[in-house]
Design a protein around this nucleic acid. Structure first.
Length: 477
RNA sequence: CGGGGUGUAGCGUAGUUUGGCUAGCGCGCGUGGUUUGGGACCACGAGGUCGCAGGUUCGAAUCCUGUCACCCCGGCCA
């Protein structure tokens, strides 16, 4: 890891983490603020990351039998009101369309904060028989939630996401679907994004508005705060009963369908920044880096340098996302630019190297410089990208372990979070009152009830009554 | 919604207390030249209704009134 901070324009992350985050977003050219309050402009480089996330997840969804479709952005008010928990959860941050031109609409429309009502209404119309099940749908779109406090990629009024909506014949199947997708998400997060996660179930208090149960994968950011990176929900037949989604079973009985929904958003980009980034800027895992390797010619005006650099780029580009920087900036500028943008590998090629038929590969994650023969550069780069992927994951996993603690009492949990923020594991009795006390006294929330349970003690760390589950607590974004 | 703060060139700012501004500086931008292995340098140049609307004054970025926008801290919240 580059020891010294080489880019002055980025705030030191240990000094002011939120400012560091904002600096990275802007300097890495991921996003910009827009004229529309609370909504960001996703710049080409940031959108490039999103496209790579999208392409890989989309392939996984399709492998598991899901189909993409598209629902309207606007939903009539009458549909929102049908499911009570759902409306209670979303109504405060819903944006309304009330007029067409100067004429008031007879029924107000709201901009989707999520599309359960539309999918449910559609399922009700199109599902009649057990032969129609399961229905495995997904859509890539944006949604709108009128947040009061916004931060690029972490919380915005409009953001990019994908929402899967499925209907099944049985409760077992909708639950299995929610768990299957959670695995797809978590695997993608760990293997491609190099972000280790904790999988588990949300408590009643933290679950999705209208869900029967919510599952989540939680990641830990550099500053010790948690980020809910994605969720899957099992609705059971709750929405089906409200929207009247019924089918005739094999034995000719009228049954309610069981549903799931699940989503990840452009918030994943925020997670990438806050898990891997350092004081020189962004650090992107190779799997989602729009540019995996940047060729930087040194003394490009000297005879043959640009040509050789372009030849190297063309070779790399056969199998990798490779680019060349032919701008007239000084080399130091280009190096800093590569680092701010988190490009995993950089190639330096100048007159001195050409004399020896070699070039220099520089790793973003470690700063290490590797001299290699030009004819081997693609092979070497390919190996290094895989090493970088493994190193980023290993590094993040190590930090997660070092920032995970256990607490036996509420004061202890508070003291841990005040001094060394991170995940805190503690036993919980299951009572909502205890969860509320943690929130009020330690400003921490339950992140999840991990699937992998440990028995830390037999009593609740808040009230001392009999403990039911180990819960992971944290301060969160 | 409560408390605090800020609006001056694309960005960051000085100047406001004590009215004299033809509004200064850095970065960035344009042209030409010299450079090029960790954010190069020189020269010349372009760019401003000082958030907006009123008012006071010989004179307003500066004082007064109103208004709008944004930011921070609380409250509320996927």
């Amino acid at each position: 890891m580059p020891a010294e901070k080489r880019v002055e324009k980025i705030t030191d992350m240990n000094h002011d983490f939120p400012q560091w985050y904002t600096d990275v977003v802007r300097k890495a050219d991921l996003a910009d603020y827009s004229e529309t309050g609370g909504c960001i402009i996703v710049r080409p480089y940031g959108y490039g990351v999103w496209e790579l996330i999208q392409a890989q997840l989309d392939a996984k969804f399709k492998e598991t039998g899901h189909e993409n479709m598209y629902m309207p952005m606007l939903i009539p008010e009458s549909l929102l009101e049908l499911e009570k928990d759902h409306v209670d959860g979303f109504a405060p941050e819903v944006a309304w369309v009330t007029h067409a031109g100067s004429e008031a609409l007879t029924e107000r429309l709201y901009v989707r904060p999520t599309s359960e009502p539309l999918f449910s209404a559609h399922f009700a119309k199109t599902i009649q028989s057990w032969r129609d099940l399961p229905r495995l749908y997904n859509q890539w779109c944006t949604v709108m939630r009128w947040e009061k406090t916004t931060r690029p990629f972490l919380r915005g009024r409009e953001f990019l996401w994908q929402e899967g909506h499925t209907a099944h014949a049985t409760a077992e199947e909708s639950l299995a679907e929610a768990l299957k997708i959670l695995d797809i998400y978590a695997t993608f997060s760990e293997e491609v994004l190099c972000i280790p996660v904790i999988k588990g179930q949300k408590t009643e208090r933290e679950k999705f508005a209208g869900a029967q149960s919510t599952y989540t994968f939680e990641a830990l950011m550099h500053d010790g705060k948690a980020l809910q990176s994605g969720t899957t929900h099992d609705f059971g037949d709750k929405f089906a009963r409200v929207f009247n989604i019924q089918y005739t079973s094999k034995d000719n009985k009228l049954q309610y369908a069981y549903q799931s929904s699940w989503g990840v958003s452009s918030r994943l980009i925020g997670a990438l920044i806050m898990v891997h980034g350092d004081n020189n800027g962004l650090v992107l895992p190779p799997g989602i880096a729009p540019i995996q390797i940047m060729v930087v010619p040194i003394a490009a005006h000297k005879p043959g340098v640009t040509e050789k650099a372009e030849e190297i780029r063309a070779n790399l580009a056969k199998t990798l996302r490779a680019k060349i920087d032919t701008t007239d900036h000084a080399p130091g500028w280009k190096f800093a630019e590569c680092e701010m943008k988190g490009i995993p590998l950089r190639v330096e090629i100048g007159p001195k190297d050409m004399e020896n038929g070699q070039c220099i590969l520089v790793r973003r994650d470690t700063g290490e410089k590797i001299t290699t023969q030009i004819e081997n550069v693609t092979q070497k780069a390919t190996e290094l990208l895989e090493e970088i992927r493994q190193n980023l994951y290993a590094r993040a996993k190590e930090r997660l372990a070092s920032q995970t603690f256990t607490a036996q009492s509420l004061p202890q949990l508070k003291s841990i979070l005040d001094t060394t923020p991170g995940f805190v594991k503690a036993m919980w009795c299951g009572a909502d009152a205890c969860e509320v006390r943690v929130k009020e006294e330690a400003t921490a929330t339950s992140r999840c009830i991990p699937f992998t349970q440990e028995n830390l003690s037999n009593t609740c760390f808040v009230c001392g009554e009999k403990a039911e589950k180990m819960v992971v607590w944290s301060r969160a974004y």
